[in-house]
């Protein structure tokens, strides 16, 4: 089992769906993965967002968006987490407000364990990028007398894993 396999297994356990794609196919994959209206943060990998994903919008459009697309700067195989950076680009609110969160993750950025992720976080903090969230599955609560997914955060998380083109 590779870390990628472990990561994908962990996503399955969390009921988080995923696509595997390549850089070249990424815009098309994303176009299929979003529900309109969709908003997005410009990607950290060398590809553009599809035209259906808006990058300029008002706060109320953010509130009304069905999907938020953001970079995931790291994946954690042990937990099925994606790491969302709280950058000036708005990753944090876009991964939080819309009901569906689509996280774009470079397969090379998947680490094995939570401890690996904390080591990475520590180096990010030292480099001046000090705010991230380890997001694991949809938001959830049991406070209303039963487990419910989709509380203040998204109720659906979808990971798009970008792998090296083997052809």
């Amino acid at each position: 089992m590779t870390v990628t396999d472990d990561f994908l297994d962990a996503l399955d356990d969390l009921d988080v769906s995923h696509d595997r794609t390549t850089l070249a196919d990424l815009p098309a994959t994303l176009a299929d993965a979003v529900t309109d209206p969709a908003v997005g943060v410009p990607l950290h990998v060398d590809a553009s967002l599809p035209g259906s994903v808006a990058t300029t919008f008002t706060p109320s459009e953010l509130q009304d968006a069905a999907t938020g697309v953001t970079p995931a700067r790291l994946g954690i195989a042990e937990y099925g987490s994606v790491v969302i950076r709280s950058s000036a680009g708005g990753d944090e609110p876009l991964s939080l407000y819309p009901e569906r969160h689509v996280a774009v993750l470079d397969a090379a950025d998947v680490v094995a364990t939570g401890r690996d992720a904390v080591d990475w976080l520590a180096s990010e903090v030292a480099a001046g990028r000090g705010s991230h969230v380890l997001a694991t599955g949809a938001s959830a609560t049991a406070d209303m007398g039963g487990l419910v997914e989709g509380v203040h955060g998204p109720n659906e998380v979808h990971v798009v894993l970008v792998e090296a083109d083997t052809e």
């Binding site: 000036a88 000090g130 705010s131 969230v133």
Partner: peptide, 12 residues
């Protein structure tokens, strides 16, 4: 579900 690390004030 969410383990957040902030170094506030944040850039967001």
């Amino acid at each position: 579900r969410y383990v957040s690390l902030f170094t506030p004030p944040v850039a967001s």
